[in-house]
């Protein structure tokens, strides 16, 4: 049983790593601007850790409290990063290549930070969850926080 869990986790991890590697490869030239590239790296970390939780929520990987706790903790920390050094002036969509950051991030920084707070709270709600049911229940608010911010502050892909 223990072995099976470990195996399934490492399988999921490999899948996640391959997905992440694919993402990273497609993002090697994510931006010539170091700040934008760093933002993408932050989002990549977010996607990776949500992927860990999502694989469990979807039933692809068995529930493992330690892994779930670790991913949730990382998400909470990623969401609490200060925005000032990352969303520098002059790095909105159209101002530098690769950026999809909308001008609203600069005109309404408090609202933007509020969305990260929403994500931080959603991730905090998943730290130390005890069961698959609790994890599944907590994924809604977490995914909702991604969507809420992207809807308001992320520009179109093309």
């Amino acid at each position: 049983m223990k072995l099976l869990t470990k195996t399934s986790i490492s399988l999921a991890l490999s899948a996640a790593l391959i997905a992440t590697a694919g993402y990273a490869a497609s993002q090697t030239a994510s931006s010539s601007n170091a700040g934008v590239a760093a933002r993408h790296a932050q989002m990549q970390m977010v996607a990776y850790n949500i992927g860990m939780l999502g694989a469990v929520a979807k039933g692809e990987v068995e529930f493992d409290a330690e892994m779930v706790n670790s991913a949730a903790t990382n998400l909470k920390m990623l969401a609490s990063m200060d925005t000032a050094s990352l969303w520098l002036d002059g790095t909105a969509q159209g101002e530098v290549d690769g950026s999809r950051a909308k001008a609203e991030i600069w005109s309404d920084r408090a609202g933007f930070i509020g969305k990260f707070k929403q994500m931080e709270d959603a991730a905090a709600g998943l730290v130390d969850v005890a069961s698959l049911e609790d994890l599944r229940a907590g994924m809604g608010p977490l995914g909702g926080s991604c969507k809420a911010c992207h809807e308001t502050y992320r520009g179109p892909k093309n």
Partner: peptide, 24 residues
């Protein structure tokens, strides 16, 4: 199929981006 169902439920794509645009 599981990816699709999860996307409809959570708004998260298989690579854990969130649903956007008119699909949101």
């Amino acid at each position: 199929e599981a990816d699709l169902v999860y996307y409809f439920e959570s708004g998260l794509t298989p690579d854990y981006d969130s649903v956007g645009g008119s699909m949101a």
